[in-house]
Nucleic acid binder design. Structure first.
Length: 150
DNA sequence: GCCAACGTTGGC
DNA sequence: GCCAACGTTGGC
């Protein structure tokens, strides 16, 4: 089983929103690295840290699980959609998504500030300067360590 | 709201 | 294939 961290802006889609719908297609990712992970590496049952970005207290707020593996992001084909991409062809889709299911809320937010302060996590892509990936892998060791902070 | 970091685009 | 211009992300 693999572990991941996925970012979402709570104003756009928060952990509460995920809980309300139970499971949700993770559409709108328009970054090749993130796409490759969703298309090729994420498997049903993989565990996900749900991270709130671009908000008052950025950090990990909950846990989710992959319930459907990579499939074409059809919102890229829709001219009305926010993340429409005319270069994505239904016969050869450029963008992929997975479905996530709500697991649980953390007892408290484990903030970015706190993660950055932990020397054990210095190699996490999340805490490295300038990282903008919205989907990133988490090692089993880091996963356990972070959950231990809860 | 600012701006640094980074990815993408497109002219040449 | 280089690289400047531009757009986006996301912490602060």
């Amino acid at each position: 089983m693999n572990y991941w961290l996925m970012k979402s802006e709570p104003d756009a889609f928060s952990l509460d929103d995920l809980e309300a719908v139970d499971s949700e297609p993770w559409d709108g990712v328009r970054n090749y690295q993130a796409r490759n992970m969703m298309r090729d590496e994420m498997r049903v049952g993989d565990q996900v840290f749900f991270y709130h970005s671009n908000c008052k207290e950025p950090g990990i707020v909950g846990l989710a699980e992959v319930v459907r593996e990579g499939y074409p992001d059809h919102t890229a084909f829709d001219p009305e959609a926010k993340y429409y991409d005319p270069k994505s062809d239904p016969d050869k889709p450029r963008w992929y998504m997975v479905d996530l299911k709500f697991k649980r809320r953390l007892k408290r937010t484990i903030s970015l500030q706190e993660l950055k302060a932990r020397p054990e996590l210095a190699d996490m892509p999340l805490v490295r300067k300038g990282n903008r990936l919205s989907v990133m892998p988490v090692s089993a060791a880091d996963w356990d360590f972070i959950l231990g902070l809860e």
